[in-house]
Simulated scan of single mutants.
Amino acid sequence: MPLLDAREVHGGYGGMNILNGVDMAIEADQIGVIVGPNGAGKSTMLKAIFGQLNVTQGDILLRGEPIQNLPTNRLVELGMGFVPQEHNVFPSLTVKENLEMGAFLKPGNVKRMLSKVYEFFPPLHEKRHQPAGELSGGQRQMVAMGRALMAEPELLLLDEPTAGLSPKYMYEIFDRVKEVNAAGVGILMVEQNAKQALAIADKGFVLAAGQNRFTDTGQALLADPDVAKSFLGG
């Protein structure tokens, strides 16, 4: 049974569909990457999975149980975490305070999970007493990911985790994604750095106009000339 299984998902905003029958499934030990042109519905799909927009048709299953249109706090309780692309830290709070905010549903786990997050992201331990707003973009992204991990999710959704980052931090974030996944957290992320993201993906989903154009392993998509020509810049 897949960890996440989305079938024929339709949904959007204000009565207008952006998703027009998207299928997406990953296993618990996999990294899934969603790529495609602007306006393809990539971030919209993450929001549909995380209950941030109305799914009008189709099913989204977490460990075989339907979750579409559940409130986000219930999804966190069920084992899902979400890191949005923007406004994903509290800039006036310290790094440690930001992380503690992520454990509000499991306050008894704070000490143990802080230790675990610092293992994933060693720079955060060094800067734990510093306001998050003073960090570099890459370190702020680590804070956002760390805060989501504080609730011990089985599935972590990442929306453009390397947007605006230098190549150095891009590869650093991808390395951390692989480590988090190896520790037992399924990952589904939207990424603009498509080639680099597909290189670490077990499953890749190429969306266009709110539909699946290609679905395969990351390596197979990278090797597909049609995918390269249409979506990866040649």
Rank of each mutant, 00 (worst) to 15 (best):
L53N: 06
K42F: 05
H129I: 12
A223Y: 11
G32F: 07
G138M: 09
A201M: 08
A228L: 13
A48F: 03
A197D: 10
R176H: 11
P225L: 12
G51T: 08
G79E: 02
P122H: 06
V76A: 09
G36W: 02
V190K: 00
F205D: 01
F121Y: 07
F82S: 00
A144T: 08
E65N: 07
G14S: 15
G81E: 01
E134Q: 14
Q85R: 09
I31G: 03
M142L: 14
G14C: 15
G204R: 02
I34S: 05
G11I: 04
E65L: 11
G15V: 08
G21L: 11
V190G: 01
V83L: 07
Q219V: 12
M45V: 06
V33C: 10
I67V: 10
G11M: 03
N88W: 03
M145K: 02
I173T: 00
D23V: 10
F205G: 07
Q141V: 05
H125N: 14
M101T: 07
K229F: 10
S115L: 12
A223F: 14
G138S: 09
M101Q: 12
L207I: 06
L105K: 01
T44E: 05
A151L: 04
G64A: 14
D159R: 04
H129T: 11
V22T: 05
N181I: 11
E8Q: 15
I18E: 01
N193I: 04
V177G: 07
A28K: 11
T56W: 09
L75S: 00
N54M: 15
L165P: 02
A163D: 01
R176Y: 10
G11L: 08
I26L: 15
Q52S: 15
R213C: 10
K47T: 02
D226A: 14
V143C: 07
G234C: 10
G81H: 02
N193C: 13
N193E: 14
P71Q: 11
L19I: 10
K203N: 09
A6E: 07
R7M: 13
D159W: 10
A163G: 03
V110L: 03
L99Y: 01
P91T: 12
A40E: 07
K47D: 04
